[in-house]
Write a protein that binds this DNA or RNA. Structure first.
Length: 492
RNA sequence: GGCGCGGUACCCAAGUGGUAAGGGAGAGGUCUGCAAAACCUUUAUGCGUCGGUUCGAUCCCGACCCGCGCCUCCA
């Protein structure tokens, strides 16, 4: 099956296939590590993760490069305020970012690159552009890209340069540039300020330059796909195209993938608006990592997603249903063999799931056949009609689903525990949901012992005592389920 | 002002020129010591409004209303 994906550049659905017939080379703009990321940021990284997982499911090997921007104005400002160099300031937030990716089950890119470790490549790119008269240096030492040198400018964001000249928001009076729209490639700095001594002078790279230089370093001058949030389309990605294609004369990225924004209360979630949640905020309130992952993945990437706590609760319930079914399938004692209906149910669900994903990563549509499978599977189990090969086929379909959505396999304990630990060491225990703190004090063995104690009471038909234990555990966030196959418990 | 996206049941949300997937929540029932889980039934003559095209439109066209994003650092 071939993935068809909306391409911002072509304005239509295009097949996503490796140009070299072997590995799909993709670049995704990563974070600027000046603070903890908010879940709006993570929506984009989750959708990129979904993309790479879907490609792998379709049998397309992926080489995925992500940058870490570890030098920029905000980093320099925050580091200075903390009395640190940027090299001392950024590692904490880079690590937090990587930890958050792990919590959300986001696969690591094949290559993670830091801007500060690629200064020579950036300088070289400026030199190439200068040689073609596409870059120029002003008297203050800054380097700019000459927009007139790239007639295709605007082809990604469909903006007409002529039509947007000198709007109110352009810094018309910015000194010495040939044109107000020319963008900075390299910013000169004085000694004492953050900067590097290079052949093009002392300074630091502009943001756009970083991505072009690193993408080309690891993926070549022309590659398959470039991803990022919708806000990066203009000017960031437009500028990447301009400087890269001016230097190489080749198409930079063939396919551009843009993820639309996460809203909260109908407004864009952003640092500057102050209306944001970090992943840790939500974990400490007692929401599970898997719930957050599913909630941010279930609305297709090309639609805005309005974040709500109801949405998280809904995702939690949906995941419970999937996990309960998977556990029930695995535990069921079944006759060997298969049934036509059972196999057909499993196969059709898988096909419909794959078709929905292949259709521009339609995650909402992709969920439906999986839940239909759950229903049909439960009915067959209730009726005692399921055979072991049916079960195996159904489990394979669930595995395919989970290789992309990654929410059925339960890895929720570790992120929550880590978040609580983080709150403890950062003096933020008051933000932790009470039942989370309580539950975190109970080990699995202690819970098992309490469950056994209740079981004994039940066998003695001492239901008062049994219910009392169940209530106590419930107050600690532990839910019990009595089933024919025994007692299951789970952390809320 | 320019460019773009969206308005589908209580909530989230898919979708198609031929009569509305899925999830959550709610209600009733089966099962259970009671719960929980699971299953069954149930919840839009209706898809922002008004016109038009069509045998037929939620889906196509036009106008309008409302919401959001980008045009500036930003996932």
């Amino acid at each position: 099956m071939t993935l068809r994906l909306f391409n911002t550049l072509s304005g239509q659905l295009d097949d996503v296939l490796p140009a070299d017939g072997a590995v799909l080379r993709m670049y995704a703009c990563g974070p600027t590590v000046y603070d903890y990321g908010h879940i709006g940021n993570f929506r984009t990284f989750l959708q990129v993760d979904l993309l790479r997982r879907a490609l792998q499911l379709f049998g397309v090997p992926v080489r995925h490069v992500m940058n870490i921007t570890d030098v920029d104005d905000k980093i320099i400002r925050n580091a200075a305020a903390a009395g640190l160099s940027i090299a001392e300031y950024t590692p904490k937030f880079e690590q937090a970012f990587l930890d958050d990716l792990d919590s959300l089950a986001v696969q690591r890119p094949e290559v993670l690159t830091r801007a500060t470790q690629h200064i020579p490549q950036m300088v070289h790119l400026v030199e190439r552009l200068a040689a073609k008269e596409a870059a120029y240096r002003t008297d203050d030492g800054n380097w700019y890209f000459r927009l007139r040198a790239f007639p295709d400018y605007g082809k990604l964001s469909k903006k007409d340069l002529e039509g947007m000249t000198d709007g109110a928001r352009v810094d018309v009076d910015e000194y010495e540039r040939d044109s107000a729209r020319d963008f900075a490639l390299w910013k000169s700095t004085r000694s004492g300020e953050t900067g590097w001594e290079t052949a093009i002078g002392r300074g630091r790279p502009g943001w756009h330059l970083e991505c072009s230089a690193m993408a080309m370093e690891y993926l070549g001058e022309s590659f398959d796909l470039h991803a990022g949030g919708e806000d990066l389309m203009f000017p960031h990605h437009e500028n990447e195209i301009a400087q890269s294609e001016s230097a190489t004369g080749k198409t930079f990225a063939r396919h551009w993938f843009h993820v639309r924004f996460l809203l909260v209360n109908g407004r864009k979630m952003s640092k500057s608006e102050g209306n944001f949640f970090t992943l840790r905020d939500l974990l400490l309130r007692g929401y599970k990592a898997s719930s957050i992952r599913l909630a941010l993945l279930s609305v297709p990437y090309r639609h805005q997603l309005n974040f709500t706590f109801d949405g998280l609760i809904e995702a939690t319930s949906a995941i419970d249903r999937l996990r309960t079914f998977a556990a029930r399938l695995r535990a069921a004692l079944l006759e060997p063999g298969s049934t036509a209906k059972g196999l057909d149910t499993a196969t059709r669900a898988r096909q419909e799931f794959l078709a929905a994903l292949a259709n521009d990563l339609n995650t909402a549509e992709a969920r439906a056949p999986i839940f239909e499978l759950v229903r049909q599977g439960n009915i067959a189990l209730d009726a005692g009609l399921l055979r072991s090969d049916d079960r195996d086929a159904m489990l394979r379909t669930l595995d395919a689903f989970d290789s992309v959505f990654a929410v059925i396999a339960d890895h929720d304990a570790a992120p929550t525990r880590a978040a609580v630990e983080w709150a403890r060491t950062n003096g933020r225990l008051d933000e932790v949901a009470p039942e989370l703190l309580a539950a975190s004090t109970l080990t699995d063995a202690e819970i098992d012992a309490r469950v056994e104690e209740r079981n004994l009471a039940r066998r003695q038909r001492n239901f008062r005592r049994a219910d009392q234990i169940r209530d106590e555990l419930a107050n600690l966030g532990i839910l019990l389920e009595d089933s024919r196959d025994g007692i299951r418990w789970k952390r809320k």
